[in-house]
Amino acid sequence: MSTEDTIKISAKNVQVHYDDTHAIKDVNVEIADKAVTAFIGPSGCGKSTFLRCINRMNDTIDICRVTGEILIDGEDIYDKRVDPVQLRAKVGMVFQKPNPFPKSIYDNVAYGPRIHGLANSKSELDDIVENALRRSAIWDEVKDRLQAPGTGLSGGQQQRLCIARAVATEPQVLLMDEPCSSLDPIATVQVEELIDDLRKSYCVVIVTHSMHQAARVSQKTAFFHLGNLVEFGDTDKIFTNPEDPRTESYISGRIG
């Protein structure tokens, strides 16, 4: 199996334009498998935009144009032959605000496996759902009410449900767009522990505006500023001994 240093995602000269706005400027980065990589930076710096490039969520925005290459396992995901639908099965995503579907907890988690045809029978599907919920550390809380609506859970539970939903499709990469920004501190701790745990099986990329969170959960950190990738390296190093003065300013709270 792969070691911690295997490169899963590699971006080359990625540029993103929204109409006239140059949102991402020539970003090059290599993201390791089986690790948590954090994107930090002030709001509007492009970190979320870049994250959404990795599973082509930007395709759903008409005015968005992406150039450059993003390779996953050596394959360019912006190649014409790539179906974004197939790509997104491989690269799951968790959003800023918990967005469970207005369905039961079970159906929320089973949604991905159903559309991708991952289960051959009801019992297989049951197993997938249970597994995903267990991995997302929410099984014990919901096992007795799988048929209850997912929207009835608390915010933290909803977010873990959304993670379970993403995990259930068996992705290889998990993208998380500020997954804790709308959660209270206790729920945040639970989700952060979960992220740390998920690292064992997935390549996790997380966008966060909280430097502390980045320091707590990630092994690698990338600092974005005004659409540029300013600095990328081991989390410890970025937070203790940044090379770029802009990173230093941000970390010490002078820009933000």
Binding site: T60, Q86, R88, K90, V94, Y111, I115, R165
Partner: peptide
Amino acid sequence: AMRDGSFGLGATKSETIRQ
């Protein structure tokens, strides 16, 4: 957000709409 959630899981547009 509901649509994004579904697209993010790799659903097609029609699957998202119908389901």
